[in-house]
């Protein structure tokens, strides 16, 4: 049991670092979605189903959707398919 928990927790940290360092914004948001999903799983393991349901609906669902919509709007504004972010490199 502890093994599973540790695995999930380390995956959480990995996701967090990856989403911060990832260059493409779309990928960063997808990784963030995975992070939220794992987080809700962990809360389920911690015997808090209320939190797990809410996090799955709000964190993984709603927040990521808002991110995607914003990116879509921004890409539309730009008139280009490529990602933003790299311009400063």
């Amino acid at each position: 049991m502890i093994g599973l928990e540790l695995l999930l927790l380390i995956f959480l940290v990995f996701c967090a670092i990856a989403t911060v360092l990832c260059k493409r914004l779309v990928s960063a948001i997808i990784i963030f979605m995975a992070y939220s999903a794992v987080m809700s799983l962990i809360w389920f393991l911690l015997q808090s189903p209320d939190l797990a349901i809410t996090e799955a609906a709000v964190g993984a669902g709603m927040t990521s959707l808002l991110f995607f919509l914003t990116l879509q709007r921004i890409n539309q504004l730009k008139g280009l398919e490529q990602d933003e972010d790299n311009t400063k490199q």
């Binding site: 349901i53 809410t54 959707l65």
Partner: peptide, 24 residues
């Protein structure tokens, strides 16, 4: 989830978020 929030896991917040997702 909304209506049985006081009996089973869930409640206004989680159920509301699910309903919002359904609307979307």
């Amino acid at each position: 989830v909304v209506l049985y929030g006081h009996i089973s896991p869930g409640g206004g917040f989680s159920g509301g978020a699910i309903l919002g997702a359904a609307l979307i």
